[in-house]
Each structure stands twice: as structure tokens, then as C-alpha cells.
């Protein structure tokens, strides 16, 4: 018997994405149309440019995802349509939301309102059948830096989060300051490989038992160091900055793992593509004797397959959402604060 399928759509920021995910969370297709080139000249995502690109790309991307799954927009064969309704850029969210509702209605299937962050929490399950609850997810991107205890599907405890900049935001700001372009994460990661991570001792914020993060201090220290010596070795700065950020991320992740006796550490979000973070998390997990789940690079960054995985969970425990639901740019993920 053929498996049931969900179509998922994600347009919360600057990627127009659609995917088809089956009931066993197998990804039948995952199409991501990135707008990075459109925003690169501006050093960051420009909301109006993102909105314009989404409305051009939405249905072509959906058609491509359905066709790769062997279906079509007239004969989709899906049991529901899942879409990100927040958090994100409101003008971007509204495009995917409007299209998803209309398709779900025309096909006579439920529409599912999905929190983007919950998508990131489900991304690991698309690639790892062996994850056992509870585990800790370090969700780290341009918009978020959170340590979340995942005790079951939909059972989350927020263990720590950034009190100022997100880690990815710090990467982008430092990269811009160093003249490395946008997006900053890959640029710094690449340059850091040629630098000395011990050249500068940038601060590791909020040490001790606290699992919250702060990245504004390290960003300011980088700026001061560069201002002091304009002839500075940029590769050394990049490597030392990256070492400071990753040190804190890995140390607090492992504290979180110990605190809830987790079986695994899972990375999610765009910064999870960072090579040093992946390497150091793998090593630390080995030392702690826990599993380490590193989603593929495609699953770290924004995609619709993860929204499909979260969609299956919502479909099973909640059913369809009302067509009057709007986008919520500051949508909060329901979590206990641990």
C-alpha cells in the first residue's frame, strides 16, 4: 500500500521551500530555492525583496516538489498541507500561508499551522531513526540560539537561550565588520580554517551553571581588536572568534545533556552547518558517551521537509487548523522553562 503524504511549505525568511514527506517521515522531495544572491549586496535579508521573490517562486517550487514525488498540483495525493506560520518575516510568511491555505482548500484536505522552530526540532528525526527521548537540541541560527530538552514529540523544555544576539547574527555582524560578505557564517568558517584560534582570547560569556548565551560581548571585542590594529591578521580574528563562540555552544550543550540525562545531542539551524561546531560537538558527545545527531547541511538550513515532519505530528495529535489563522512573526514555541 502506498504511504500517506503531506505537502509542506516554508517561506519564513529568504528561502522558498516545499517538500513531500510520507507518514514514516521519509522525505520524498525537498526543494529549496534560495534567495541569497538577491540579498547579498545588502549584507542581509531585505524583507520587501524576500516577499517579492516568494510570490514569484511559490507555486513553481510546490510543483517541482510534487513532481519529484511523482505527483502533480492537480493530483497531489496528499492528506494535508503544512505551512510555517511563524516566527519569521511577516511579508514572507504570508505568501506561503496564503498559498498553502488555498491549495489545502482546493484539494479538500486540512491545512496545518506549523511553528518554524518546531520544524528545526523535528529535522533530526528525518535523518535519524535511532534517536531516543529525551535528547537536547541546540537550535542555533541567525534568529535563534536555544538549548531545548526534547522529552517527546511536542514536549519541549527551554533550558537556555541567548539574552542578546543570536549566534548566527553575531557571525553576520562580525563578517560584515571584517568585510567578508554575506552570509557571514560560511565566510568566517572558511577563513577560520587558515587562522590561529589562539591568536586572540575573546570572551566566553556567562560561564558556570547558567545555560543562557550572550554573543554581543564577543562581537564588541572583535570590533575593538580590529580597531586597535588595522593591520590585524583577519584569518586569526575569524578563527579566534569562531573558537570563542563554539566553545560556549558546546560547553553549554554538554551541561544541558548532563542535566536531563539526555541520550543525544542534536544540532539544528543554519549555524549547525558550521564545521568547527560539528567537529567539536561530535568529540564532546563521544566523551560523554551520548549519541550525536548532525543533520545534513540541507536539513540544518531552512527547508520544508522539517515542516512536513512537524506537520505529521500536528496532523496526528491536533488535526487541521482553521483557515482564519494568520501569520505571526513573533510566534512562540510552547515550552516549559526548565
Amino acid at each position: 500500500m502506498t504511504k500517506e503524504m503531506i505537502l509542506a511549505i516554508e517561506t519564513s525568511c529568504d528561502e522558498t521551500a516545499a517538500a513531500v514527506v510520507d507518514e514514516d517521515l521519509h522525505v520524498l522531495s525537498s526543494v529549496v530555492s534560495s534567495q541569497i544572491d538577491l540579498h547579498a549586496s545588502f549584507g542581509g535579508v531585505v524583507p520587501e525583496i524576500a516577499g517579492r521573490a516568494h510570490v514569484e517562486l511559490l507555486e513553481p517550487v510546490v510543483q517541482e516538489a510534487l513532481e519529484q514525488a511523482g505527483r502533480s498540483i492537480r493530483d497531489p495525493g496528499v492528506v494535508a498541507v503544512a505551512v510555517t506560520t511563524g516566527p519569521g518575516l511577516v511579508g514572507s510568511l504570508l505568501v506561503g500561508l496564503s498559498g498553502a491555505k488555498a491549495m489545502a482548500y482546493a484539494w479538500g484536505v486540512p491545512f496545518l499551522s506549523i511553528n518554524h522552530l518546531e520544524g528545526h526540532l523535528f529535522a533530526a528525526q528525518l535523518e535519524s531513526d535511532s534517536l531516543v527521548f529525551p535528547y537536547v537540541t541546540l537550535l542555533v541560527s541567525g534568529g535563534h540560539t536555544m538549548l531545548i530538552g526534547v522529552h517527546g514529540p511536542g514536549e519541549y523544555r527551554l533550558m537556555g537561550e541567548t539574552i542578546d544576539d543570536a549566534a548566527g547574527e553575531a557571525y553576520d555582524k562580525v563578517a560584515r565588520y571584517l568585510g567578508l560578505g554575506y552570509p557571514g557564517g560560511p565566510a568566517i568558517d572558511k577563513l577560520a580554517a587558515q587562522g590561529d584560534p589562539t591568536a586572540f582570547r575573546f570572551p566566553r560569556a556567562l560561564p558556570g551553571e547558567n545555560l543562557d548565551f550572550s554573543f554581543s560581548g564577543v562581537k564588541t571585542s572583535v570590533v575593538r581588536a580590529v580597531d586597535r590594529s588595522p593591520e590585524i591578521n583577519v584569518a586569526d580574528v575569524a578563527a579566534s572568534f569562531q573558537a570563542a563562540v563554539v566553545d560556549v555552544l558546546v560547553a553549554k550543550s554538554m551541561q544541558a545533556v548532563e542535566r536531563i540525562d539526555a541520550t543525544a545531542i542534536v544540532l539544528g539551524g543554519g549555524v549547525a552547518a558550521n564545521s568547527l561546531l560539528r567537529e567539536r560537538t561530535t568529540t564532546a558527545a563521544l566523551e560523554h558517551g551520548v549519541q550525536c545527531a548532525l543533520p545534513s547541511l540541507a536539513m540544518c538550513t531552512d527547508n520544508a521537509a522539517m515542516i512536513g515532519a512537524a506537520g505529521w505530528h500536528r496532523f496526528r495529535v491536533h488535526g487541521g487548523d482553521d483557515f482564519s489563522i494568520g501569520a505571526n512573526p513573533s510566534l512562540v514555541l510552547e515550552m516549559e522553562r526548565a
Partner: peptide, 20 residues
């Protein structure tokens, strides 16, 4: 108004394409 236009056009196009 740009955001409104995108809501309407995404809705109309998706309805038309999905229903034929």
C-alpha cells in the same frame, strides 16, 4: 499595498492551479 497584493495573488494562483 504590497503585502496585501501578495496575499491575494498567492491565494488566487494557488486556488486556480490546485482546482484547475
Amino acid at each position: 499595498l504590497y503585502t496585501g497584493l501578495r496575499v491575494g495573488i498567492a491565494t488566487a494562483r494557488s486556488l486556480a492551479m490546485a482546482s484547475g
